[in-house]
């Protein structure tokens, strides 16, 4: 394994717009979790590259890859080793397949920021001065899994470095990881996938299969039914003076009623019938085509 011991500090780049918000896609979190599950035994933490794009002061994270590394953490004095070759290579490979993604930061699977983090951050600063640091608490020490993002910001009075070649001199000014808010961002399709995966949580074997069209209609109808029941239950309770009416809910209900288009019964029937006829006709056509195919196959199989 070609490991570079990090001891050379890169040139500090000029300041640009520092990110103010992180938009994190679920695929990246899933990747971090996967990397954590594949960690080496007794690993202190897992770190890796975050890919995505900068958009003004918003960072969008859409991909990640773990970087093999070793560090003692806390007590023992094992030096930090980061496999920069793998990191560099994964970044290049990712850029070849999805050129729109650049390095936007790095992640760690521990909630705190140990001193070694400064050195890892230093490695990533080469790619972009505005990179962020994301921590996903995978230690399971609490019943939550906090996700936090930080930017590197200088603070305090700059001090003239005694020796310009000294790596630690950069930190003489005093700097800190300032926390910035994280937001989960989903495209519609991602949300659909996430919702489906989430249903597996309720399964004793943690398994879910992909639903068919008919399942979907059934599920939605059930859901709609439940929602109507909830609304009706509330309304009835209010009508019976069991609970006080909440004007906010009332307004929301009015909005819902307002959205329902008022369609003339005849026109509606005509509309539904027309599109039903369309569907039935297309169904008939497709069945006809299928029958034709089956016939053709049978003819083909006949000995000539």
């Amino acid at each position: 394994m070609a490991t570079t011991k990090i001891n050379s500090a890169p040139q500090a780049s000029a300041h640009a717009v520092s990110p103010m918000l992180v938009r994190l896609h679920p695929v990246a979190i899933a990747g971090i979790c996967d990397a954590y599950e594949r960690r080496k035994e007794k690993a202190f933490r897992v770190v890796g590259t975050l890919m995505g794009k900068f958009d003004g002061d918003v960072v969008e994270i859409t991909n990640c890859s773990a970087v093999p590394h070793e560090e003692g953490g806390g007590q023992n004095q094992m030096p930090l080793r980061l496999d920069t070759e793998v990191a560099q290579s994964m970044i290049e490979l990712s850029k070849r397949a999805s050129p729109q993604e650049t390095v936007v930061g790095w992640f760690s699977t521990r909630p705190n920021i140990p001193e070694t983090s400064f050195y890892i951050h230093d490695f990533y600063v080469r790619y972009n001065p505005n990179i962020i640091h994301l921590t996903v608490d995978c230690t399971a020490e609490t019943d939550r899994m906090p996700i936090k993002a930080y930017v590197w910001s200088a603070s305090g009075v700059p001090q003239e470095p005694k020796d310009p070649k000294d790596a630690a001199a950069r930190f003489d000014q005093g700097a800190l990881f300032a926390q910035i808010p994280v937001e989960i961002a989903c495209w519609d399709a991602e949300r659909v996938g996430l919702d489906l995966i989430s249903t597996a949580r309720k399964d004793p074997h943690r398994v879910v299969s992909i639903p068919t069209d008919a399942d979907q209609v059934l599920q939605t109808a059930t859901l709609l039914d439940e929602m109507l029941d909830t609304a009706l239950g509330y309304i009835n309770k209010v009508l019976k003076d069991e609970i006080p009416a909440d004007p906010e809910i009332g307004r929301a209900l009015m909005d819902v009623i307002g959205v329902i288009p008022k369609i003339d019964e005849e026109a509606f029937e005509k509309m539904v019938n027309a599109s039903r006829k369309d569907v039935l006709m297309v169904m008939y056509l497709s069945e006809l085509a299928k029958a034709q195919l089956a016939l053709q196959e049978k003819v083909n199989i006949l000995p000539s």
């Binding site: 679920p26 979190i29 899933a30 979790c33 954590y36 599950e37 995978c138 399971a140 939550r144 899994m145 996700i147 989960i184 996430l194 489906l196 995966i197 989430s198 597996a200 949580r201 074997h205 943690r206 398994v207 879910v208 299969s209 992909i210």
Partner: peptide, 15 residues
């Protein structure tokens, strides 16, 4: 079929 690990389930709960 899609199978989640316990850890992923925890992550989904957090999300």
């Amino acid at each position: 079929r899609i199978k989640n690990s316990h850890f992923v389930n925890a992550m989904l709960s957090e999300l």
